[in-house]
Design a protein around this nucleic acid. Structure first.
Length: 437
RNA sequence: GCGCCUGUAGUGAAGUUGGCCUAUCACGCCUCCCUGUCACGGAGGAGAUCGCCGGUUCGAAUCCGGUCGGGCGCGCCA
């Protein structure tokens, strides 16, 4: 018999149907037994009065894979307005071991219990509340993708196995690759710039690897990044307009589609200005000045924003401009890297902050070959090196002015829902001491 | 890496100024009762050498030293 999903059961009133899924909850009231079955679309309640049928479930634990066949009866007392009666039970995969956690109860997300959260991840993702996190994540990724595809961005797949790292900065993982020194990509940056030289507009949603020994609520060793790069921009503002509008659009759509889920997860209310063009933008120097004035902590000598400053400016933007998003732009020139576009004392690079956390870096790149060679040389890099050879080819043979962003998907999900730790937004997080599951 | 906090049944918690702890509670699990449950309810039961090692003491979950695991903040962060 055709399998009917939980969400469609009510539409088959009066018919005999078969549902399949996992035993989610038993409520045995004696002669009246409620069994709820979970499938990918939700729960179905079934009513089993026949003692022989309920006996088939004796000794079987939550998670047992079942097919239940019965008549759909509309009843207001049933969750969803309908349930199965006169049920025949067929056990497809019996589970006799007691699950180590309860999957129909709230899963603790207290910081102290995060280790248990991930230790039992395989099972707690069967919890419907826990699943909401990953359904929201899925929507966020889909929204980013469709925003970009609609604007003629091409989705790309660039290698994560790279040669020996040449440029410093973030620590990379290195390993033996058939006798050669290899490393894991910390970013698809070089590739996306190269691809701008062919396709103008590209993006990638993929993993990036960081070997920094960071033990914070916002870092992981393996993260999911959205990398966007667009050619033929005419200013840094073009880049900020595009990325700001994209994030604005994705957050709006996600809050719309998952209003109920976000409410049940106690997500903060979304505050955005009337238009994405109104996302407040402050220079790093302005933020240092305002922060120093407000807190008496002098940060004017800092190159970057300190974490507390990020939270402070976010709070300021929310109160003064009604915006959960804020740009911190124009980093001091000494913070810039060789691939950035420099404009006097500052570098055309902005961070997009969402609720006090950096979710994206949005730079404008240097696109002129001679300038690149000069900036690399000034940075003490050897332009003849293998790692730069192919990268520089793209410049030598013509790149338009371009810029884009590297955006942390995990952080967007974390902050959208209001999770305390970025790992909670990730199915199987990797950090400095977790490699499993 | 540094600082602070933390580690008690399968899970989540209480107890941590040493003795009344033979370690408490909730959920889960097992047995039984229960015809409208939906965090079902009721009766009973099993389940913990209190992270590990050592020390102090008549006596340690509790104090001390070490060690391992975990968390938070900072640092690092193309």
């Amino acid at each position: 018999m055709e399998r009917i999903l939980a969400r469609n059961v009510a539409g088959h009133s009066g018919e005999t149907i078969t549902i399949s899924g996992w035993l989610h909850k038993k409520r045995l009231l004696g002669g009246l037994n409620f069994i709820s079955l979970r499938d990918r679309s939700g729960l179905t309640q079934t009513l089993i009065e026949n003692k022989d049928e309920i006996e088939k479930l004796r000794g079987l634990q939550i998670g047992t894979v079942l097919s239940l066949t019965g008549v759909v009866v509309a009843d207001e007392r049933a969750p969803g307005g309908a349930e199965l009666h006169d049920v025949t039970v067929e056990v497809l995969e019996p589970v006799t071991d007691e699950p180590p956690i309860e999957i129909d109860k709230p899963i603790s997300h207290k910081a102290d219990n995060l280790d248990s959260l991930f230790e039992f991840r395989v099972l707690n993702i069967r919890n419907l509340q826990e699943q909401k996190i990953f359904k929201i994540r899925n929507t966020i990724i889909q929204q980013f993708r469709s925003y970009l595809v609609e604007r003629e961005f091409m989705e790309m797949d660039t290698p994560k196995i790279l040669g020996k790292p040449t440029e410093g900065g973030a620590e990379v993982f290195t390993f033996d690759y058939f006798g050669q020194d290899a490393s894991l990509a910390q970013s698809p940056q070089f590739y996306k710039q190269i691809l701008v030289g062919a396709f103008e507009r590209v993006f990638e949603i993929g993993h990036a690897y960081r070997a920094e020994p960071s033990a914070t609520t916002r870092h992981m060793s393996e993260l999911t990044m959205l990398d966007v790069e667009v050619g033929f921009v005419t200013s840094h503002d073009d880049v900020l307009n595009l990325i700001g509008d994209m994030v604005y659009d994705v957050l709006r759509a996600t809050y719309e589609r998952h209003a109920d889920d976000l409410r049940s997860l106690n997500a903060p209310e979304l505050k955005l200005p009337a238009s994405s063009a109104d996302i407040p933008r402050f220079t790093i120097a302005e933020i240092h000045e305002m922060y120093t004035k407000a807190t008496k902590t002098d940060t004017t000598k800092e190159k970057d924003l300190i974490p507390d400053e990020e939270r402070w400016i976010a709070d300021y933007a929310r109160k003064q401009f009604g915006s959960d998003l804020v740009y911190a732009k124009d980093f001091p020139a000494e913070a810039g890297k060789f691939y950035h576009k420099f404009t006097g004392d500052t570098v055309a690079w902005a961070d997009l902050l969402f609720r006090g956390l950096e979710i994206a870096t949005c730079p404008l790149r240097e696109s002129n070959y001679s300038k690149m060679v000069e900036q690399m040389t000034n940075a003490g890099l050897n332009v003849e090196e293998e790692g730069f050879k192919y990268y520089l080819q793209a410049f030598k043979f013509g790149l338009p002015m371009h810029g884009g962003c590297g955006l942390g998907i995990d952080r967007v999900v974390q902050k959208t829902i209001g999770l305390g730790n970025v790992k909670e937004s990730t199915l199987f997080p990797r950090d400095i001491n977790r490699l499993t599951p």
